[in-house]
């Protein structure tokens, strides 16, 4: 594996912590995307079909979450919640903050996708006697899902990148584990490049998954 101080040697030494950092990055991203998308679906439903007060409430929350820098959200969840005697660990604070960010974007994505389905689709479904949830399940959502896919993948990629911000509150995800390795071996450029490569691999996988899903949904056209 070469001599101490060479890149190959040092990365072999650091492999365990880098891999666990990468694993944590992926776990956090998955958790955030799952939670954020789930909440975002309801936020989006509320934005499209909810009564005016509910729409206004959701709209306000979405605007705040989208308007505030993600780092501020993270710091707020980590330090701010403690002020209200809510005890959260750093990873939990990070997941809450990023999920909020993700949910806000997904609400908007969902709303846009559902609103873009022509009103004639709803009317045709009504005309055969379908009820609200039936129309949603069988007519609107299958079509909206396809339109939601590209922005959803984008959001996923943003989330993966956004997890790097959690290094600031001490979550040892990929970036912080890289920085800790650099602190021992001073191979700054090489290790940041290695980390960048891993991020690219993760995000490339995400977008490939998205492309695969899009192909699966490509069986119909307009």
């Amino acid at each position: 594996m070469g001599d101490k101080g060479t890149f190959l040697y040092e990365i072999w030494v650091a492999r365990g912590s880098l891999l666990s950092g990468a694993a944590l990055t992926m776990q956090l991203s998955l958790a955030v995307i799952a939670i954020g998308s789930f909440i975002g679906c309801f936020g989006g439903l509320g934005l499209v079909y909810g009564p005016a007060p509910l729409r206004l409430a959701i709209r306000s929350v979405v605007e705040v979450l989208r308007g505030v820098p993600v780092l501020v959200l993270i710091l707020f969840c980590y330090y701010g919640l403690a002020l209200f005697s809510i005890d959260v660990t750093a990873p939990a604070a990070g997941v809450i903050a990023l999920s909020g960010f993700c949910a806000a974007h997904m609400s908007e994505t969902f709303r846009g996708a559902v609103a873009s389905i022509p009103v004639g689709q709803t009317e045709a479904a009504k005309a055969i006697g379908m009820r609200f949830w039936q129309r949603l399940t069988y007519v609107i959502l299958p079509q909206a899902a396809r339109r939601m896919l590209p922005p959803w993948v984008n959001t996923g990629v943003e989330i993966v990148k956004g997890t790097t911000l959690l290094s600031i509150i001490g979550v040892v995800e990929l970036l912080l584990s890289t920085q800790q390795a650099i602190a021992r071996n001073y191979l700054i450029i090489q290790f940041y490049l290695a980390a960048a490569l891993i991020y690219i691999i993760i995000n490339f996988s995400v977008s490939q998954l998205g492309a695969w899903l899009e192909r699966r949904f490509a069986y119909f056209r307009y």
Partner: peptide
């Protein structure tokens, strides 16, 4: 339920594309 007893055909077809 009442709508289910009345059929409607639209100018723009409105078939379900999926």
């Amino acid at each position: 339920d009442q709508r289910a007893r009345i059929g409607m055909v639209f100018q723009g077809f409105n078939l379900f594309p999926h």
